[in-house]
């Protein structure tokens, strides 16, 4: 127990130091921007990882919540001039409420049906963004999202925004950790290992799945809020099916290793397009291959799979060494 706590403290400290180091040490706006995007994607991956990695429930429409967060704040603060921070509260409440309404029937489904149900939900929301053009700006997008400000601090500069995003990520990481190490987290993981047994042991699996669905929707909405006020222009493409697939890919890479897996998945998928020349052309092929290959050989996720192989070989070495 105590060992665990110590380990978590060191992890958190390292994380904080790295954030501070990157934020203060990097001057290049382009790099800061990329690292901010990594933070936003990490939030998305963290939320979906709770649902997919830990509770074992697939969602192919999670970009919808990302979009709901972004469009809610855009409309409220852009069109109606409400303070963005009040809009944030509305965005999160809205996403959580929709997650509740949609999750109630959808999370009763399992396997293929759940995949289809969430996919259909994501598509409907995206069509809404596109077609409700008087409010959302339609397929040409929404222009005129205001900058974030908190009293005297303006988040105009890349550096301030970077710190804002990563502080939110840190809070989200701590929240996920607390949930996972609690009674609720244990029950969640038990659903992943065997839903029938979990039910028979007395876990209200449907309610629990619903709760975690709402939690991940909230994280998605926060990510959408941060995204909208960062790029200040949003369009339906940013929240379409491909984005949902991208989120799933991040989780598949990060897997159930730990909340850090989500960070790894998000970093990889944000950096790849920047590093690989002509990535946009091959983006779909690469995502598709990652999804297929990882799921075929390491269904518990890439990071977890690699860790397992490493631990296995270390055990074997020990046995042979002695």
């Amino acid at each position: 127990m105590d060992d665990n706590k110590k380990k978590q403290w060191t992890e958190n400290t390292i994380f904080l130091v790295v954030i501070l180091g990157c934020g203060l040490g990097v001057d290049n706006t382009y790099y800061l921007q990329i690292m901010t995007f990594i933070g936003i994607n990490t939030l998305l991956a963290l939320g979906l990882n709770m649902l997919m990695g830990y509770a074992g429930q697939v969602s192919l429409g999670h970009a919808a919540f990302y979009g709901i967060g972004a469009y809610t704040t855009a409309i409220l603060s852009g069109t109606y001039g409400i303070s963005p921070w009040a809009a944030l509260v509305c965005a999160v409440s809205c996403a959580v409420f929709i997650a509740f309404v949609v999750g109630l029937p959808t999370l009763k489904l399992s396997g293929y049906y759940l995949g289809m149900g969430t996919l259909g939900f994501g598509m409907i929301v995206n069509i809404l963004f596109r077609e409700w053009s008087t409010v959302t700006g339609g397929s040409s997008g929404f222009v005129g999202i205001p900058m974030l400000e908190a009293g005297p601090v303006s988040f105009m500069s890349g550096r301030n925004y970077f710190f804002l995003v990563w502080m939110v990520v840190l809070v989200a990481v701590l929240l996920c950790r607390r949930i996972l190490s609690s009674r609720m987290g244990r029950a969640l993981r038990s659903i992943h290992d065997g839903e029938n047994a979990s039910l028979a042991v007395g876990v209200n699996t449907h309610f629990l799945k619903l709760q975690i669905f709402m939690f991940s929707a909230a994280l998605g909405a926060v990510a959408g809020f941060l995204y909208a006020h960062f790029v200040m222009f949003i369009s339906p493409e940013s929240f379409g099916f491909m984005v949902s697939v991208k989120m799933v890919t991040m989780v598949v890479i990060g897997g159930m290793a730990s909340v850090w897996g989500a960070l790894l998945g998000a970093s990889l998928l944000t950096l790849l397009p920047e590093v690989l020349h002509g990535f946009a052309e091959y983006e779909m092929i690469i995502f598709g291959l990652i999804l297929m290959v990882v799921m075929i050989f390491m269904p518990q996720g890439l990071t977890r799979g690699l860790l397992d192989i490493y631990e296995h070989s270390r055990k074997r070495d020990k046995r042979h060494g002695n």
Binding site: R178, I179, R183, M184, G185, A187, V201, G202
Partner: peptide, 14 residues
């Protein structure tokens, strides 16, 4: 997990 029904803490507790 077997003790789930005899304990109470939920999301907010966690």
């Amino acid at each position: 997990v077997g003790m789930h029904v005899r304990t109470k803490s939920g999301f907010w507790g966690a």
